[in-house]
Each structure stands twice: as structure tokens, then as C-alpha cells.
Amino acid sequence: MAVSDDEFKHESIQDTELIIKYLKALTEGFQSGKLIFGTKQKKFILEPNGLLRLGISAKRKDRKVKVSLKASWTEGKEGKELYPDPLEIKAGK
């Protein structure tokens, strides 16, 4: 649900087969550096690049299970990432 101009929320029920579509779409967004959220009329674009903070948590309590995945970052002044040259991490020996 688009809550305000720059907020998007979507809740639904999925099964393990259908949820993959959503996870794939998000993965592709991170890969391409462009994540689009919204409706036909109103959408906003996020451009994740550079450093992201990733939080993964899992919890089980009274038969209720929750797995959360949270990615956050800070944008530059015009929606761009704060640092012009993203840090590059290469696998070293």
C-alpha cells in the first residue's frame, strides 16, 4: 500500500512457491541498482548502490515464526548515494 509519496507498504499472504516471485523481483532490483515501488499512478524509484546495511533476523515464539530482512542506506542530496565512488570489495587472497 502506498502510504505517502515516498513510502510503500505491501502485505499479502504467500506460500513458499509464490513468495519466490517477490524475492526474485527484489533481487533483480538490487542487481540492476534500481528498485521501483508503487502503483500505476504513483511510483518511486530507489537506487541502491555502494554500502548498504543489511539486517537479517529470525525468531520463533509460540509457534509463530518471523524472518526479517532489512536493507538500509543513506542517499545523497538528490536521491543519489552519499559517496560518489562506491567502495569496491574484491575477494582477496
Partner: peptide
């Protein structure tokens, strides 16, 4: 319900 876009979906 209106159509939603989530990435490419």
C-alpha cells in the same frame, strides 16, 4: 485493489 509494482513484478 490497484496493481502494485515491486521491482520487476
Amino acid at each position: 485493489l490497484k496493481p502494485r509494482q515491486i521491482g520487476s513484478l
